[in-house]
Simulated scan of single mutants.
Amino acid sequence: MGGTTPEQDEVRMIETGSNPTRFARGWHCLGLADTFRDGRPHEVKAFGQTAVVFARRDGTIHMIDAFCRHMGGNLARGAVKGDEIACPFHDWRWNGEGRCVGVPYARRVPLRARTTAWITMERNGLLFAWNDPQGNPPPPDVTIPEIEGYGTDRWSEWSWKSYLVEGAHCREIVDNVVDMAHFFYVHYQIPRYFKNVFEGHVASQYMRSTGRDDIKTGVQMDLPDAVTRSEASYYGPSFMLDTIWTESDGDVVEAKLVNCHYPITPDSFLLQYGIVVEKKPGMPDEQAQVMAQTFIDGLEVQFLQDVEIWKHKSRIDNPLLTEEDGPVYQLRRWYQQFYVDVEDVTPEMVRRFEFEVDCDHAIATWEAESREAAARAANAPA
Rank of each mutant, 00 (worst) to 15 (best):
E122N: 09
S162H: 14
P191H: 05
R99A: 08
A129W: 12
V142W: 14
N196L: 03
E148H: 15
G125T: 00
M121E: 14
A117G: 09
V174D: 03
Y150V: 02
W130K: 04
F183G: 00
Y105Q: 11
T152Q: 00
N95F: 08
E166Y: 07
H201E: 04
W118C: 09
R99D: 09
R93I: 02
I190V: 11
S159C: 09
D132N: 15
R192T: 01
A168L: 11
F183C: 00
Y150N: 01
V101E: 11
H201R: 02
E172R: 02
Y188R: 01
D91K: 10
V178T: 11
H169V: 04
I119C: 06
S162G: 08
G96Y: 13
Q189L: 07
F128T: 05
K195T: 06
V174H: 04
N196Q: 15
D132T: 08
W158L: 11
I144M: 15
H201Y: 13
G102N: 15
Y150I: 06
G125P: 00
H201S: 03
R99M: 07
A117S: 15
D214T: 13
Y188C: 00
N131P: 06
H90C: 13
D214A: 15
P139W: 10
Y193S: 03
E166L: 08
E97T: 15
T120M: 04
E166G: 11
V177E: 03
V109R: 12
D175V: 02
G200A: 13
I190A: 05
G102C: 15
R123C: 12
E172W: 03
D179V: 05
L164F: 11
L111N: 12
I147T: 08
P133N: 07
G102Y: 09
S209G: 04
I173A: 09
N95L: 04
G200K: 06
T143R: 12
E148P: 12
P137A: 08
W130E: 01
R107T: 12
Y163H: 15
L126H: 02
D179Y: 12
P139H: 03
V103C: 12
I173P: 05
E199I: 04
R192I: 00
F89D: 08
N124T: 01
G96P: 13
G135S: 09
S159N: 08
L127F: 03
R107D: 14
R123T: 04
H182I: 01
W92L: 14
W92R: 07
P139D: 07
G149Q: 09
H201C: 01
W158M: 11
N131L: 11
T152K: 02
G167I: 14
P138F: 10
G96T: 14
L127T: 01
V174I: 13
A106D: 14
P191I: 00
T120H: 12
V177G: 01
D175K: 02
V186S: 00
R171I: 13
R123A: 04
V109A: 10
P137I: 04
D214P: 07
E97M: 13
R93E: 13
R114G: 01
N176M: 01
G125Q: 00
R171N: 08
H187F: 02
M180R: 02
V197G: 06
H182P: 01
V103N: 05
